[in-house]
Each structure stands twice: as structure tokens, then as C-alpha cells.
């Protein structure tokens, strides 16, 4: 039971990170029907940006207060990653709008290769260790099972931040004119354009929001794992995509639900079976979901029009 509780806490933390990345996939797929392959690498880039920003603040500007540094890093990483994703959309995807459907996918794969190698070239191929931060750990049980179930400040921070951001994001999509424009473009881009919605701008904003959420996930990734590498984008990216598909691609609550499920499955699998095959488990779930439930848990079935 203690083990179960501990794994539940770990799984929810990991699932929050996947969920935040998954939103970027699901939004872009919803609005332009494209699997944004480079999103995982945008996430990796944001982790690097966050790490370097933190170094600048602590080493060069001598900011002593950790919470202040954290807030500045978070906002800075969100803004800079959003700028990156905006530029990527503008240069690599927008010229291909209206082209045949494989073109943006190939472009995105190229972008993904470009981004990971770009980071490798400018920051070097080795692992980057994050500075050790104080991490208060709460003990939940008394340790009668031989060890104590723990909940760290980092984990609380990650989950709390995810919840707050999702609430804000939910409000944005459901109750603002921007969110309405976005949903309209999702349903029918041509009609939305005829009704005076700037479709290009709406798509740009979708990429910006997706990148900002991925940047939050990137900051959390650095805090949680304490190390980042240029190749770290691919696997979390594929898992987040799995999460988006599992939840029903195009559905925002589905992405978060899928993220939590993938995080929990991965953690429980590692705990009760073997860590060797945890990625295999995630990929198998992706395949099984798509074969038996192609529209995911919360997605709408795709109707083929003749």
C-alpha cells in the first residue's frame, strides 16, 4: 500500500509534465491537422533556456532569492520558447499551409532534427547538470514498511503549477474571444476566415500557447530530474503525443487525462514489473489505443465524408 501511494505521487508528477506537453500536440493537431513532430524538441530547448537563464540569474546577477529566480526563469523561458515556436511556425509550417498533407509532417521532422542538433552544436553533447536546489521532503507515513512515503516540495510545486496553468488555459479557451476564434478555426478554417477571424494570427497564437506550456514542462523537467541533454526531446515528445492520442486528439481535457494516465502507467510498470520495458509499455498502449479506440477516451469519432 505504501509503495502504491508513493508511485501514485510520482506518477501524477510525471503525468503533469506529459500533460503540459500533450496540450501543445493536441491544440496544433486540432487546428491545422498536423502532428507537430518538433514539439518534443521545443520542450527540450525550453529546458536548456530555463537552465541557462537560472545560471545567469544566480551566477552573473547574484539573485539570492530562489522563489524570485524561479518566477523569472519560468516567465523568461515561457516567453523565449514562445518566440522560438512562433518563428518555427512562421518559417517552416506556414509556407506549407494548403500543400498536401505529408509536407508539413516532413517539415516538422526536419525541424525536430534541426533543433536537437542545433542545441548539440551550441551547447555541446554532454549532459548538463542543474545546480542542486534545496528540496524539502515531507514524510507521509511513519516508515513502518521499511521506508517512508515521501512528498517533496518540488512535486507539490509541479502539480500545483500544472493545475493553476490548466485552469487559466481552460478559461482562455472557453471564455475569451481568442479561445472562441481558436475553436472556430478548429471547426472550419475557411468559414472562420469569411467571418473576419485572422486565421494566420490564431494559428500563430496556438503555437505560442503550446510552446509556453511546453516551457513550463521544460522548467519542471529540469527541476525534477536535475539534468538535461540535447537528445531529451524525442522520448518525452513521443510519450506526450501518446498521451494526446490516448485522451483523444483535439480534446484539451483529454490531453491532460492522457498525460496523467501515461505517467501513472509508466511509473507503476517500472515499479511492479521492470524498468527495462517501460517505454515499450507506453508505445504498446499507444498502438492498442489506436487499434481499438482510434478516437481516444474523450475524442470525437472521425466521420469520413464522401
Amino acid at each position: 500500500m505504501d509503495n502504491f501511494l508513493q508511485q501514485l505521487i510520482n506518477g501524477v508528477t510525471l503525468g503533469s509534465i506529459y500533460g503540459l506537453i500533450a496540450i501543445g500536440y493536441t491544440m496544433v493537431y486540432g487546428i491545422i491537422g498536423m502532428v507537430n513532430f518538433a514539439h518534443g524538441d521545443v520542450f527540450m530547448l525550453s529546458a536548456f533556456i530555463a537552465l541557462i537563464l537560472f545560471m545567469i540569474l544566480t551566477q552573473l546577477l547574484h539573485v539570492g532569492s530562489l522563489p524570485l529566480a524561479f518566477v523569472v526563469v519560468l516567465i523568461g523561458a515561457m516567453a523565449l520558447t514562445a518566440l522560438w515556436n512562433w518563428s518555427i511556425e512562421r518559417l517552416a509550417y506556414r509556407p506549407l499551409r494548403g500543400s498536401f498533407r505529408l509536407a508539413p509532417l516532413i517539415s516538422a521532422i526536419g525541424m525536430s532534427i534541426f533543433l536537437s542538433n542545433f542545441v548539440q552544436v551550441v551547447q555541446g553533447p554532454r549532459n548538463k547538470p542543474a545546480p542542486q536546489l534545496p528540496n524539502h521532503v515531507f514524510k507521509i507515513t511513519d516508515g513502518s514498511a521499511g521506508y517512508s512515503v515521501t512528498l517533496s516540495v518540488r512535486q507539490i510545486l509541479i502539480v500545483a503549477l500544472t493545475v493553476v496553468l490548466l485552469a487559466a488555459f481552460w478559461y482562455l479557451v472557453k471564455h475569451t474571444s481568442l479561445g472562441r476564434a481558436q475553436r472556430a478555426c478548429e471547426q472550419d478554417r475557411k468559414m472562420a476566415a469569411l467571418l473576419g477571424i485572422d486565421v494566420d494570427a490564431t494559428i500563430s497564437i496556438t503555437f505560442i500557447i503550446g510552446a509556453a506550456l511546453a516551457a513550463v514542462a521544460g522548467v519542471m523537467f529540469v527541476i525534477y530530474y536535475g539534468v538535461v541533454n540535447f537528445a531529451d526531446g524525442f522520448v518525452p515528445g513521443v510519450k506526450a503525443f501518446t498521451a494526446a492520442v490516448l485522451g483523444g486528439i483535439g480534446s484539451l481535457p483529454g490531453a491532460v487525462l492522457g498525460g496523467l494516465l501515461i505517467g501513472l502507467i509508466e511509473v507503476f510498470w517500472s515499479s511492479y514489473f521492470t524498468t527495462d520495458y517501460k517505454d515499450v509499455a507506453a508505445f504498446m498502449i499507444l498502438a492498442i489505443t489506436l487499434i481499438f479506440m482510434p478516437s481516444g477516451i474523450l475524442g470525437r469519432p472521425e466521420v469520413e465524408k464522401v
Partner: peptide
């Protein structure tokens, strides 16, 4: 590989 990725994007466009 950096140029390989960029070339993929450019050739697609």
C-alpha cells in the same frame, strides 16, 4: 545533421 534537418525543411517549402 543540423544542415540535414534544415535541408529537409527548405526542400519541403
Amino acid at each position: 545533421m543540423l544542415l540535414f534537418g534544415a535541408a529537409m525543411v527548405v526542400m519541403m517549402i
